[in-house]
């Protein structure tokens, strides 16, 4: 009688063990790789961030007072804008999608073409771009100086109320360092909350990191789901042709290469790719399945992807868990 009860129970245990996507040791290793550390912050982070936030949302800091950083980096849209390509002054379309600023605290290189090495370097670029905010350094400082709300914020952040572009970029960079996502369902699962992901999502993650299957992690490295690298992923439909990173590194490998975006909260940042050509994450997956069989000076990191319908659903379920 006892044996009669014991054997089915043993069978269930063996079956569960066989189905567990990761062993305890593998999970320990995954945790080490994928959990984000706390970002490195300035000692005056709180005060700088407070000033940076005010500047970030201030539409007065554009030539026609219409546009702030938040006009394109909209908090409710994953700090992107939901458009295929960004809109500049007077609604003029720009050539690339607005990249989300989530987790840029961890970025080693910024912008789709990597033209900025730090958040501080990047922060002023849109202000001085004639298509984006249309100011110059003198105008930017004058506009900030004309607002009575700023002197106190500068004083709190820097000890006095002097305004210069280095201080502005420092404050903006520090504010952007506070826009992080490190507690998604996936992160909670890594930290040990087994209920945070269902089996389909865990299997989707397994496909994500398997170089023989979806091979996403070949470029979307841990822990920030990006290698901070540049790849030509075969998006060549745009006219006129956008050469991307090649403009700064003119070697053949960099033609039409763009930065690998991070993926936490990617569910909120549609459409996808530098040209906004994929409306959904499923379209992104299908792009890689189609493009990896072609050969046109594409990134060598584009490994063959061969997922069936069920596997695509699992991968998609995992991507949706990065929320």
């Amino acid at each position: 009688m006892r044996l009669w009860i014991f054997l089915p129970l043993l069978a269930i245990c063996i079956e569960s063990a066989a189905e567990a996507p990761f062993s305890t040791d593998e999970l320990r290793e995954l945790r080490k790789q994928w959990l984000l550390p706390a970002p490195t912050l300035h000692p005056q982070h709180k005060q700088l961030s407070e000033l940076g936030k005010k500047i970030f949302f201030d539409t007065n800091l554009s030539i026609d007072k219409s546009t702030s950083c938040a006009s394109c980096h909209i908090p409710e849209l994953g700090w992107s804008d939901g458009k295929p390509t960004a809109q500049g002054l007077v609604g003029k379309p720009l050539k690339r999608a607005t990249p989300s600023i989530i987790n840029t605290a961890y970025s080693k290189v910024l912008m789709w073409d990597g033209r900025a090495d730090s958040l501080e370097q990047q922060a002023l670029m849109p202000f001085f771009d004639p298509l984006e905010m249309g100011l110059n350094e003198k105008l930017l400082i004058a506009k900030i100086a004309s607002n009575q709300e700023y002197p106190n914020l500068f004083e709190r952040a820097f000890g006095d109320s002097a305004i210069d572009s280095a201080r502005i970029s420092s404050a903006l960079a520090e504010f952007q360092r506070s826009i992080t996502a490190s507690n998604t369902r996936f992160d909670r699962w890594l930290k040990g909350d087994e209920s945070a992901l269902n089996n389909e999502e865990i299997l989707g993650f397994k496909l994500f990191i398997d170089p023989q299957k979806a091979a996403c992690a070949v470029c979307h490295h841990p822990p920030n789901f990006t290698d901070d690298g540049f790849h030509n992923i075969g998006l060549s439909k745009q006219k006129p042709e956008d050469l991307g990173r090649y403009r700064f590194t003119p070697i053949p490998l960099m033609k039409r290469a763009f930065k690998t975006p991070s993926l936490r909260l990617a569910t909120r940042t549609a459409p996808y790719f530098h040209d906004g050509s994929a409306k959904t994450l499923l379209e992104v997956i299908e792009h890689y399945q189609e493009v990896s069989v072609q050969k046109h000076n594409f990134s060598p990191s584009l490994l063959p992807v061969n997922l069936n319908k069920e596997e695509k659903e699992k991968l998609l379920a995992f991507l949706n868990s990065l929320e």
Binding site: K108, G114, F230, T249, I251, L253, S301
Partner: peptide
């Protein structure tokens, strides 16, 4: 000397 893929 640099790596073009990872310019840092």
């Amino acid at each position: 000397v640099q790596c073009a893929i990872h310019p840092f």
